[in-house]
């Protein structure tokens, strides 16, 4: 771990030391440990630890009220955690300078209605303390499709336009970490594709992204890793391959002998529906599992009409994880 444990949470940590830590290539973009928050007597976040590596895109998933937004706000110092440590880009989050290279699109996106879009961006550039030339700020506005409305007052913007402006605000100060809380909640279908392209573009520039979204397809397309929260707790986390590790194979078979059936059962759990058999493949089966199975089935006299890879979608997996966590009470 790059985080020097003595530096965590001490405001007075020498600046020089912080800079050294910040420059370590291994310091993750986000590192938090044991975050807890309760509102009244209800725990909103309970012992959540997560990490986002440099240049990594991590999806934050979970049902409504799972605590995703609360976790994000605690990372940014907007909500004070009851317990736990946060490091951003290698610096303890107690130091505001840790957020110098962080861009944030809140779930509740509102910007000064009396300013124009261009003025909002200029304000955030000033507050971030980064010298971004006006031309680059304009480019940022056109990236989110607001180039023509740059001089208009934000008060007159539609909801989706405000969210687009929020994206531009998150991107304008040359961030190394971008935290997006439901960035597409108000966007039209084209806007959603735009956001996907933006995230992929950030990834190609090695900018880390923490993406909270209810659109699982979106998350599945762009994220390297996902973290699933449920009722304030970490329900699961891992790379997409790890979470979706369980692969399936669908086969259309006739003349299935008992020996062939045994061979199928030996591979994994098999479900029969007419001619069709769905068999779960072992995660560690390697590349040869499918050709080996087909060869053996043919040798055992079965006639193979079709072989299709069956995919478990992230959605199925997420629902499975949440059902398990709720003891199937949903």
């Amino acid at each position: 771990m790059a985080a020097d444990p003595t530096a965590v949470g001490t405001d007075a940590a020498p600046r020089a030391a912080a800079l050294v830590v910040a420059d370590l290539p291994s310091a993750p973009a986000v590192w938090c440990s044991g975050l807890r928050k309760r509102y009244g007597r209800r725990p909103a976040v309970d012992d959540v630890s997560l990490e986002v590596g440099r240049g990594e895109v991590v999806g934050l998933l979970g049902p409504n009220g799972a605590g995703k937004t609360t976790v994000i706000k605690m990372l940014l110092g907007l909500v004070h955690p009851d317990a736990g440590e946060v490091m951003l880009l290698g610096r303890p989050a107690a130091d505001p300078a840790a957020r110098a290279r962080v861009g944030y699109l809140p779930e509740l996106f509102r910007y000064q209605p009396w300013l124009s879009a261009a003025e909002v961006l200029a304000l955030h550039v000033r507050l971030a303390g980064v010298g971004v030339p006006a031309q680059e700020q304009r480019a940022c506005l056109s990236l989110v499709g607001l180039a023509e409305r740059a001089a208009d007052r934000v008060g007159g913007f539609s909801k989706g336009m405000q969210q687009r402006l929020g994206l531009a605000v998150a991107l304008v100060a040359r961030p190394e970490l971008v935290i997006l809380d439901e960035p597409t909640s108000a966007l039209d279908p084209i806007g959603r594709v735009d956001v996907r392209d933006i995230v992929l573009e950030l990834k190609s520039r090695a900018v880390a992204v923490l993406l909270n979204s209810h659109l699982i397809g979106e998350v599945e397309r762009v994220c390297d890793r996902v973290v699933i929260l449920d009722r304030g707790r970490l329900a699961a986390s891992g790379t997409l391959a790890e979470l979706l590790g369980q692969r399936e194979l669908r086969l259309q078979l006739t003349d299935l002998s008992a020996a062939a059936q045994e061979r199928l059962a030996a591979t994994g759990k098999a479900e029969h529906a007419g001619d069709w058999v769905t068999v779960a493949l072992p995660a560690d089966g390697g590349d040869t599992a499918v050709p080996d199975l087909v060869r053996d089935l043919v040798a055992l006299g079965a006639r193979v009409h079709a072989v299709e890879p069956g995919r478990i979608s992230l959605e199925d997996r997420l629902l499975g994880i949440l059902r398990e966590g709720h003891g199937d009470d949903r």
Binding site: P96, A100, L127
Partner: peptide, 14 residues
């Protein structure tokens, strides 16, 4: 209340 402060206070300011 409106959320305007969220994006401002997430900047590196005290």
């Amino acid at each position: 209340e409106s959320g305007i402060a969220l994006s401002v206070l997430a900047r590196p300011i005290r």
